[in-house]
């Protein structure tokens, strides 16, 4: 089967020195890629390139088997309709209610043409998924940081996208809330078999994705059983270059000093 997302020798800069240099990787359907790296190493830029919000200076990007490197903005909307995204600060529209925020992609993705009478049910289901079914008529400023992040997840998954991008979903949250968010990301991955790309600077986040699965029966996380795999890969960025790309085992065994900062010991 075709890879969902391919970066082929991609470089990017803002005109003030390189931000990403010769980045190559690919994600297959159902795989999880954990994107590690210090602040300013290019994680957000990589995600924005994958969404077509920025355009690479050189190299090729393929999404769902289609070369998207030189698509113009109107063609990008068809591709973006198949991707769900959670922005670093949530990126919620602060003048819209929670229900309107979650309904936004259903109403506005030109390609989806979602039946109007099903939108309310779909929004309610998506907010139920993140356990915020009671907040429909609130506005984002009335919610806590963690709740806003959960609404962001509800909005990202409401269209049942084939690829999900999470930009530092746990940044700025306390450890307990951060774990709630991670549990939701696992829930989406394992219930709907979503291909996942998550940028983070916390090594615990990556570990949870590697070592746990969402158990639908008990509605909680359980450790991965023997012989089972979460099909997770690690990608570590350092100043815009790939410092590591491989399996979690190789990552933890690496002797490289920079890698060791992000690996668990």
């Amino acid at each position: 089967m075709d890879a969902v997302l391919v970066f082929d020798n991609v470089s990017f800069d803002f005109g003030l020195g390189p931000v990403l240099q010769n980045v190559s990787f690919s994600i297959s359907p159902g795989e999880t890629l954990v994107l590690h790296g210090a602040a300013g190493s290019g994680k957000t830029v990589l995600l924005k390139l994958a969404l077509g919000l920025l355009r690479p200076v050189s190299g090729r990007i393929l999404l769902f088997g289609q070369d998207v490197t030189n698509l113009d903005e109107s063609e990008w909307y068809d591709v973006r309709a198949r991707i769900g995204v959670l922005f670093q600060e949530g990126g919620l529209f602060d003048s819209l209610t929670i229900a309107e925020n979650v309904a936004y992609p259903l109403l506005n993705q030109p390609r989806l043409k979602f039946p109007m009478d099903q939108i309310d049910a779909r929004v309610a289901r998506s907010l139920e998924f993140v356990e915020l079914g009671h907040t429909l008529e609130k506005v984002p400023s009335e919610l806590s940081g963690g709740m806003r992040r959960r609404v962001g997840i509800a909005r990202a998954i409401v269209t049942s996208p084939e690829l999900l991008l999470y930009d530092s979903p746990t940044a700025g949250l306390d450890p307990i809330t951060a774990n709630t968010i991670m549990a939701l990301i696992l829930k989406e991955r394992d219930e709907n078999n979503a291909t996942t790309l998550m940028a983070t600077h916390r090594h615990q986040d990556g570990e949870i994705l590697v070592r746990y699965r969402w158990d639908k029966r008990t509605a909680s996380l359980r450790p991965v059983g023997p012989g089972e795999s979460t099909r997770t890969k690690y990608l570590l960025l350092r100043d815009g270059r790939i410092a590591f790309l491989g399996t979690p085992e190789e990552f933890d065994a690496s002797r490289d000093e920079y890698v060791m900062q992000f690996a668990s010991r």
Binding site: K48, L51, G52, L53, E73, S74, Y77, R80, A81, I83, V85, F87, Q88, E89, G91, L92, F93, D94, Y104, P105, N108, Q109, P110, R111, L112, R155
Partner: peptide, 16 residues
């Protein structure tokens, strides 16, 4: 909206 990524979110969610 620009500095809180709402413009990016708009583009990502299907509106120009």
């Amino acid at each position: 909206m620009k500095v809180t990524e709402q413009i990016d979110a708009m583009r990502a969610l299907g509106t120009d």
